[in-house]
Every structure is written in C-alpha cells, then in structure tokens.
Design a protein around this nucleic acid. Structure first.
Lengths: 196, 196
DNA sequence: TTGTATTCCTAACGTTTGTTAGTTACATTC
DNA sequence: GAATGTAACTAACAAACGTTAGGAATACAA
C-alpha cells in the first residue's frame, strides 16, 4: 500500500493530471482507462477518486489550461506595439515552444477536446474560435500594411497552427536536429516559403 | 426489417465502411460503437457481422486504402521527369485534393491509425515512414539543385503534411472560399511563404 | 413453386468501463 | 498516546462494449 509520491510542491491531484496527460496522449482519451491511469500512478483505480471528481475532469483541466496559455499570450502580443509580421512571428514561435516543452498537454488538448462534456465543450470551442479570429485579424492587418502577401488570412492561421502540431512526429523521431534548429526551420518555411 | 440500401455498384460492405469512416471521423474510433454504426446504417448491430469480420477490420480497410493512394501517387511522381520543385507541388496539391474530396477517410487514417491491430499497425507505420522518407528525398534533391532553400527536409515534410490536415477545419467552417482558392492559398504560403 | 443463399432479427455472452460504498491504514496535531 | 483527517484498499455496481448463436424473413435460381 504505497502512497502517491508527492515531490516538490505539486499536489497529488497535479501528479494525477500530469500522468493522465501522458496516458491520453499515448492511447487517446477514450482508450485510456482509469485502471490504466491507476497503474501508472501506482495505486488502485478507486483511490484516484479521493483526488479527482471524474475522468472527464482530467480532460477539461488539461484542455482549459492549454487554451488559457494561448489566450494569455495573444492578449500580451496584441497589447504590444509591434508590426503585424513581428506579432505573427512571436505567436508562431510561442506555439512551437509550447509544442517543444509542454507538448503532452497541447497534443491532448488539440486531439481530444471533442470528448469534453458540456459546458466545457462549448467554452473550449468558443475560446478556440475566438483565438483563431484574433490571429487572423493580425494577419489581415499585415496584409493591409503590405507586410504580408495577399492571401486568405484564415487559411494562413490554419496552416500555421496545424504545421506546428506536426512537431509531435519530431518528438517521436530520433531528434536529428535540436529544438532551436526546428524552430528556425519552421519559422523560415512558413514566413519565407520553401522556394529559393 | 429494412435492408441496407445498395445503390450503384457498391456492395453492402462498402456502404458500411463508408458510414464507418464518417462515424470514426465524427466521434473517434474508440468512442464510435458498433451500435452507433448500426443505427447510421439502418440495421441492428449484430447484422453488421454478416458483412464484416470485426470493428477493427473497418479501421484497417480505411487506413490501408488511404496509405495505398499516397504510395501510388509518389510512385507515379518519382517516375516522371520533373524538377524537384514541380514534384513537391504535385504531391502537395494531391494531398490537398485528397483532403478536399476524400477527407473522411484521410482524417480517420491520420488520426486513428494508432488503434490498428497487428500486423496492420506495423505495416501502416512502415508505409507511412517510407512515404515521408521518399518525400524528404525529393526535397533534398531540390536543395542540392538549388531550387529549394537550405532547410531541414524532414521538417519541411512534416509541415506540409500537417498543414494540409488543417483542411478539416475548413470543412467545418462556412466555406467562405472555394476549394480551388484554398488550394492556391496553401500552395502559395507553403512554397513562397507569408512574407511579401 | 420449391430450394438455397443471403440478410436480417432477437437474445444473450463475457469483458471492460467509470464510479460508489464501506473499511482499513497512515500522517498529523493536540 | 489519543483523536482526527487524509489517502489508500477491497468489493461491487450498473451500463456499455464487441461479438456469437440460432432462428425468421427476404431474394434469387431452378
């Protein structure tokens, strides 16, 4: 009968959420059972319920946290006095950094948000939609100021956000290049294109 | 007691696979139950087993079909006498077209392949890996011939493949722009970049 | 019309699922 | 050391899952 190891200043709940993110990333939310999670945590399944309310709570804690991080960042970027192109590059680099450092949460949020229950599902959808609109608005500002090519702004947002999510494959591979190199490559390709 | 509608020259099995792809896309493979599928098909769950062997067969039929289409295309492209840049653009446009026309299969294959059972899982993984290597080789050829910027080829592949998968959001949105416009925007951004 | 496949049905199976109830062990405070 | 709250356990629940068995209805060939 071993207790959950609580190192640092993280609570037992935080540890469970962290392990859950890992498991959800690996197997998907639906395929990951509470008994799987319990095993990883080192405890019986029923014991988890001393710390969390339900399986779905785990998912919405993860998703909400990720969504808030991106919302906070775009708040910050919009407030600064920068050119549109600079704003875009900052956001793009932030996405890449998040994907390099907190990728488990980000991937789960990206891929499993559909399994959120109401009202968290509606909230998440709204926050996501709003974020993309604000991102697109920055691009449109850049087009107006002739910093950016005349392209469809929402398509550009779509490309950038999804391109970044490809970093998951990078994590799985043998990491021939470093995170910094990856970041520079991505920014170059997306801002300046492949063609010479 | 209604029978499965079999129009054109498609078999009942093909109809089930088609509806399954739609359902898997909507709810995810694990969350989509055979009873859900039966309801969509218009039949009782047990009746499906007169036409298919198992739920997992549905998934691997879908995934294998998608993987083969891309493999066939890259076979075709490699055989032609074209510049690397042209080859890349053809492949990119093919990905976009597939995502516009057969997106349900492609999305399911992209997102749910992890739930394949052996030996289909290993086969799929291998085919996917090989495809990406071949794609990266074309890019490296382009770099050598100075048609393409000096970037990390596998990062470029990763960006392109994942950018295209963002077209799913396009399908969900109110389609302000046409498929053709979307294609041109994507190709422009990825080949020439955002910056003016 | 009769015989034979095909396609559907109902009923049920054995698992696995998320979760609750009730109880025991540990940790902390007085 | 007694008291109290926290965190673990065992056992079990009802519901949902994929799938099978066996029989009834339909379609097609003779």
């Amino acid at each position: 009968m071993g207790r959950i190891q609580t190192l640092n200043n993280s609570s037992r709940k935080e540890i469970i959420v962290e392990k859950a993110a890992n498991l959800f990333k690996e197997k998907g939310y639906k395929a990951a059972s509470m008994r799987d999670l319990a095993e990883v945590v080192g405890v019986e399944a029923a014991s988890l319920y001393n710390h969390i309310k339900s399986k779905s709570e785990l998912l919405h804690v993860i998703c909400l946290d990720v969504a808030n991080r991106f919302t906070n960042k775009i708040d910050e970027v919009e407030a600064e006095e920068l050119s549109a192109k600079e704003k875009i590059e900052i956001l793009l680099r932030f996405h890449i950094q998040e994907m390099l450092n907190n990728y488990e949460d980000v991937i789960v949020s990206d891929r499993e948000w559909k399994h959120l229950s109401e009202p968290y599902l509606s909230n998440f959808r709204h926050q996501r939609k709003t974020y993309r609109k604000r991102f697109a608005a920055i691009i449109e500002e850049g087009i107006k100021k002739k910093e950016i090519k005349k392209i469809d702004a929402s398509t550009a947002v779509l490309i950038m956000l999804h391109a970044v999510s490809g970093i998951e494959s990078f994590h799985r591979s043998k990491q021939k290049i470093s995170g910094k190199e990856l970041e520079e490559n991505m920014v170059t390709i997306l801002i300046n294109g492949l063609a010479k």
